[in-house]
Design a protein around this nucleic acid. Sequence first.
DNA 1: ATTTAGCAAACAGTATAAGAGAGTGCTAAC
DNA 2: GTTAGCACTCTCTTATACTGTTTGCTAAAT
Lengths: 354, 354
Amino acid sequence: MDKTLPERQRLILKEIVDRYIRFREPVSSRMILDDYGLSVSSATVRNDMNDLEEAGYIEKPYASSGRVPTKKGYRFFVDWLIDLSELTKKERLEVVEAYQVRCLEVGETMRQTAFLLGNITEYVGFIIPPRPAETRLDRVVLVKMGPRTVLLVIVSDIGIVEHGLVTLDDDISQADVDRITEIINTELHGVSLDAVRDLTLQDGSDGWYERPVRQALLVLGRLLERRSGKRLYFEGILNLVSDLQKSVPDRAMDRFAGLIRAVQDEEGFVEEIYRERGERSGLVISIGEVQREGMEDFSVITSDYRPHGGVMGVIGPIWMNYGRAMSALSYIANRLETILVSSCPRDLIEGAEI
Amino acid sequence: MDKTLPERQRLILKEIVDRYIRFREPVSSRMILDDYGLSVSSATVRNDMNDLEEAGYIEKPYASSGRVPTKKGYRFFVDWLIDLSELTKKERLEVVEAYQVRCLEVGETMRQTAFLLGNITEYVGFIIPPRPAETRLDRVVLVKMGPRTVLLVIVSDIGIVEHGLVTLDDDISQADVDRITEIINTELHGVSLDAVRDLTLQDGSDGWYERPVRQALLVLGRLLERRSGKRLYFEGILNLVSDLQKSVPDRAMDRFAGLIRAVQDEEGFVEEIYRERGERSGLVISIGEVQREGMEDFSVITSDYRPHGGVMGVIGPIWMNYGRAMSALSYIANRLETILVSSCPRDLIEGAEI
DNA sequence: ATTTAGCAAACAGTATAAGAGAGTGCTAAC
DNA sequence: GTTAGCACTCTCTTATACTGTTTGCTAAAT
């Protein structure tokens, strides 16, 4: 990586990116002097800016305008020049309190997290739930509701993941329900949700168990199957509206609609996020690099979170406040990990660590 | 009500509204002739249009442009001139299938309904859940999860409304849990959720029961309290983007942002919807009449649904396709009622009807 | 009493031109 | 390596003219 750049040019580049992020208009040589109090003339700054332009870090919208950072410029900025800006006490409190209300339901925790990400960064927050392949079944809970109906609750090592109704062919006693629960939990405790799904949906185990057990297993499988569909939670898409409107008034709607379309196909989006992250862990910053039509002008910052390899992130305009977003993302990822791990039953904790 | 208007003027007004809804541009006297084949001259049509304008049904964006319907014009249109357009077989199927997947969770049913409304009308669908004051507790289910933790599921006459974790001070046996369940269900079966909330949160019952029962009741109350907060489900806000962009390219973002803001304050929005409906039942059409800043240029069609007095609706631009939206709304409201009533336990059905 | 033909007037929308202002690139001097 | 000065470029705004659509009005026709 080339962090080599003359000191003054680094300063000027930093100033250009900082100012552009703040005011969203091309930065002239004068502005840099006014603001920064460099003890050189504007001509000198212009010379440096020329060098920076030749090196591909900045560009001009038109021949005699101020400079605007290029993607390469943003990249250099986030890699070498950025100041991280800690969350305020108030914001940290918001996060902590949001997680205070203990959510049993994993889905609720996901929604909450996406909401926090969106709300604090004022961009779009999203989260991909823990992979079912690495989430383990803690137990199922069966409760007799009616003569032939039983409530089924699926509890994983990170909380309740689904519930549904099992309709049986015949009437059944509470004792039988308890026995079935016992059987299922003995067999499936600690098995990954994906494996549970496959086991319960395949017809192989047909002869093994009595009918009510088979029926319960079938519903269990179906619920997990349906669950796999829900792979993504978004919050705060509307935060972009005012930002875009202020920054690119005439193209705002286009950009916005483009992003919506890019994100509509959740399956594809999730895949692209994983592809883009590759084998990296921790924060990954993609500056217009997410390969989806309509996202060329958006930046995405993602972070993985343990246990079970989920990914959360923030989508913002390419001129987003990277420092803030990065801090927020780290902090929230960290909090979420704490929450998830702390709700993990003791005997499944080793299994949870990869 | 004045449905009195010379026959030809009615025809012309209908044609103007129809065309404006379809093409979203001022309608000239020529267009009406071309399209409709009236056997009069354009001058005659112009005279009629003049009358219509004087009567306040249409107006000109500028001195020599074609005519555009006024709110009064839309009102006359929906009251006297509209053709309802039935949903297609495919659309009806979509609705039926969406409800096929039996949702236990009331919240899920609400989300589903809002989604259907938004998706089929291609505007914004929303739904206000059944009033807790008129929803009755069927029973609670308590399941021992750990030594001192108990899972609490709240089942109302229309399905599961919430679940949460009760943390007890002392260890407890399964038998005790069953006894507590019995006590709570005996006391509270058939009581409205609002009443349950108030009963369980007031400190009066302090001495009555042993500690574990009191603790369970407290959590029950808290969950119902939290639930009251979630009074609104929205889906399809993004459907408006393309419509607005096509219709009012430059003001699109403003309008959009305005609506978002108007709807952000859910409490206030819900109140205004109830205020606007007043004592009316069935479909209510508000043409820019919902008194919220930013909604002057949007129309809202609402419908109540039984049991328990919820309201669902569609928000669209003032030039929305009223015929389609009205049909969709009636149909979906009807389906939802069927679903809700059919899942209602026998002994609570009378209570459900107001 | 309606309806119609014909025509002047209104105005959006587009295109073109001119002027102001901001910022750069370059050259020559420091 | 840095700076002052100046010509040049390009956006943004304002003014002007032109085109095409549609209306309102008047006078004649039915």
